[in-house]
């Protein structure tokens, strides 16, 4: 599927600012960091969650648990895939019962990934609440899901693709909008 980059909508600095703001919003909403934890959705939600937790610790002076959730086994489109996506480990090495969990992902689109993530999380225990933080909300929801914390709202068409790059995986930070080119 050939892609053409249309333009960059966030650079490294913009991402940093957005994460700092979201960190403040999370602390404010939860009135501190008591029983608070962040859980990133593999893959790019992982580094973002770690980054958010670092900022929260900087602000509050208290560390909070961070986890990474692999939602592959909870996806609702497995029967549509020609071959099965590789499953990775879920690394939530703390008890989530009664915790306030902030799920973190890079892009909120149809809402299906978040649905899967909530199911995956529920199978690990019974959190007190689940909140959602995303770097980009591009609209086109197919499920009744809404983000609590948003880095940037980006109206898109369905032909467009939002690509988030994070240093740990892609070697750079940034968000760009790309378009599918008819081949």
């Amino acid at each position: 599927m050939p892609l053409r980059e249309k333009n960059q909508i966030m650079d490294e600095v913009a991402i940093k600012r957005a994460l700092t703001r979201i960190a403040h919003e999370i602390i404010e909403r939860n009135k501190g960091v008591d029983r608070l934890a962040v859980v990133g959705i593999r893959r790019r939600g992982g580094p973002l969650a770690i980054e958010l937790a670092r900022r929260i610790e900087e602000i509050e002076g208290v560390g909070i648990p961070v986890g990474i959730l692999d939602i592959t086994l909870y996806r609702d489109d497995l029967t549509l895939q020609a071959s099965q996506p590789q499953v990775h480990r879920t690394e939530v090495n703390f008890d989530i019962n009664d915790m306030k969990i902030v799920l973190v992902d890079d892009v909120l689109y149809t809402g299906r990934t978040v649905r899967a993530a909530m199911d995956a999380l529920m199978d690990l225990g019974r959190p007190k609440s689940i909140q959602l933080a995303v770097l980009v909300d591009r609209g086109h929801r197919e499920l009744p899901i809404k983000a609590d914390f948003i880095g940037k709202n980006v109206p898109t068409s369905k032909q467009e693709i939002i690509s988030v790059f994070v240093k740990e995986i892609d070697g750079k930070d940034g968000v760009s909008i790309e378009e599918i080119v008819d081949s």
């Binding site: 599927m1 497995l78 029967t79 549509l80 895939q81 020609a82």
Partner: peptide, 14 residues
Amino acid sequence: LYMMMGGAKDEIAN
């Protein structure tokens, strides 16, 4: 079982 039982019979673009 995961690798062999899931999945579509024909390739469906994603």
